[in-house]
Design a protein around this nucleic acid. Structure first.
Lengths: 323, 323
DNA sequence: TCGGATACCGCAACCGGTTGCAAAAAGTAT
DNA sequence: ATACTTTTTGCAACCGGTTGCGGTATCCGA
């Protein structure tokens, strides 16, 4: 059916090994025969079969990208950037969605393992032990979670939280609330730690909450009860839910209460009031993660954590307090 | 390094072909040796190498999914559903982002071709001619665009538009505006055709516009000039931009003007006012598209178009007219 | 007990490339 | 012209599976 290396060899009167080298070891073949072979290959529409190549070289030129939920607006920019970067390096990427299920996640890694040179694990739900075990079989880089001794890319929410708190205190707020995320979340812990270390303001912790609009909706009574004039939400979805719930109670944002989210996802930019948020450099994370991964595929260099800066984007959901 | 079929064969004292059959042709091997082989394989942690298998069988058990822009909120639900469905059928999926560039799109198809059994083309930017040519090399199914003689899954925006217009006229609106999308867009043409065929109301066409929030923002002066009391936007992003621009002019939605979007993307559900929209069954489209694709991979059945129902979701951006 | 069908298994070629090794060709120094 | 490099090419084994073909072992009925 398809045109193979042998077709090209026959058509150009050389041995298959010469054709092979014309592509993957140019310096080992006479320039003139090389150009002739290449021309004929082009002519015949020959495309090397990467799967066959992988069989002998051990390099598939594929990577796997595993995320908990593709439809979560946090991930698409990361996926897009990772994919673009991989393409630039002549890699293809499998993307898989685990549906938040650790079981599925492990299974996916197992079946993907033979087809990829490495995998990018984004906000994995697996235990550290499992990840460390799986690591024997295939190079990883982990995004958005700290796993001992593995190449990791993290986003510095702590800094974002400090910036946010400063922004808020600058506006006169003294009583803050932090709506935390799922109890297992690394990001949530980081946020709490950073907030607890600030002493410009009183902060009370509310949660844990599901990381969704519903979670935000569910948190409004607690927020009101806390007497806080400003709220830092686990993420933008929670913040949006919160604002909605507050509005239902007749409480204006930012008039009565200020709200800050985390992530800078698209819906936050589009909602009203436009959300003030701690922007996570997800695209950069995706890009850098694949660089790291490919690097750790070639060389045996393994560990090291890269942390990316976050920033505060002030929009319309924060304002001066008047209480 | 990894454990191969030969390791398993040796460990269980049978020939590799028996091990192979134990996995892929169970009825050809004695049940007792089969279970023994399987147990030993399990024990050794053997996983068949799909790339190697692909070499002889010609089936990679991979599919490609090509979209113009992963980060466009329209696609993630489709990708997620397609991926889930593929996994259920024991397929992996490459997803690739073309950045809206036809050149990249073609290139991607070319390089992917050897690694996949078929590709899903979502809202392709390629010309029909090119697609038809590429089709010789690999099975396709096209989503969200009509290409002669190819398996296609479409979403019936026409019906959605009729529903929307009925909804609007029921609310008393008589002068409508349709903010159209990019001139090449199949969806846009469908919408125009459906709207033009209705005679309950006057509709004026505005555009073409980029399919983004900016496009909506840019369309507000035209909308105002048209004198319409209700607007149907090319998609939710445009609708949101429109609402924002209208608000800047002090025009209330839905108080003064009603707005309807298309797609039912997440930001529309979260924005305020919550968007009334024509819901596109993107998840279903993804699921069905992979079914169709796998089906056309096995059998040689090829053409046929599947049309999915759309529906109108009435939220807060539409109301009675008072002019 | 024997012949033939059936179930099970091994052999070896093959899928489409890569690569170590050696042969042939071309170039260089003497 | 000879011996020795260096460059270019061919040969054949190999990567990890699959599969057509043929050989045994077992089972069946007569």
């Amino acid at each position: 059916m398809a045109v193979t290396i042998r077709d090209v060899a026959e058509a150009s009167g050389v041995h298959v090994s010469t054709v092979s080298r014309a592509f993957s070891a140019p310096h080992l073949v006479n320039p003139v025969t090389r150009t002739r072979v290449l021309a004929i290959a082009e002519d015949l529409g020959y495309r090397p079969n990467r799967a066959a190549r992988a069989l002998t070289t051990g390099r598939t030129h594929n990577i796997g990208l595993i995320v908990a939920d593709i439809a979560n607006p946090f991930f698409p920019p990361l996926i897009k950037a990772a994919q673009a970067q991989a393409r630039m390096r002549d890699y293809h990427v499998f993307v898989a969605d685990t549906d938040e299920d650790p079981q599925v996640e492990e299974e996916l890694i197992q079946t993907l393992t033979k087809q990829v040179d490495g995998v990018l694990l984004c906000s994995p739900r697996l235990t550290n032990r499992t990840i460390e075990r799986l690591r024997e079989e295939i190079p990883f880089v982990v995004v958005n979670r700290r796993v001992k001794g593995m190449p990791t890319v993290l986003m510095d929410v702590g800094r974002g939280v400090r910036l946010a708190v400063e922004h808020l205190t600058g506006l006169g707020h003294r009583r803050l609330a932090l709506v935390t995320g799922p109890s297992g979340s690394w990001t949530s812990k980081e946020m709490q730690a950073a907030a607890a270390a600030m002493n410009e303001a009183d902060v009370t912790f509310l949660g844990p909450n599901p990381p969704t609009e519903q979670g935000g909706l569910a948190a409004v009574t607690d927020v009101i009860a806390s007497g806080a004039t400003a709220v830092l939400a686990y993420n933008d979805l929670v913040a949006i839910g919160l604002i909605e719930g507050l509005a239902e109670r007749g409480i204006d944002v930012p008039g009565d209460i200020s709200v800050i989210g985390v992530d800078d996802i698209v819906p936050g930019r589009l909602s009203r009031p436009k959300l003030t948020t701690i922007a996570m450099p997800t695209a950069a994370a995706g890009r850098i993660a694949v660089d790291l991964l490919l690097q750790s595929v070639d060389s045996e260099s393994t560990s090291g954590v890269t942390v990316l800066e976050t920033s505060l984007i002030v929009r319309e959901s924060t304002g001066e307090t008047h209480s």
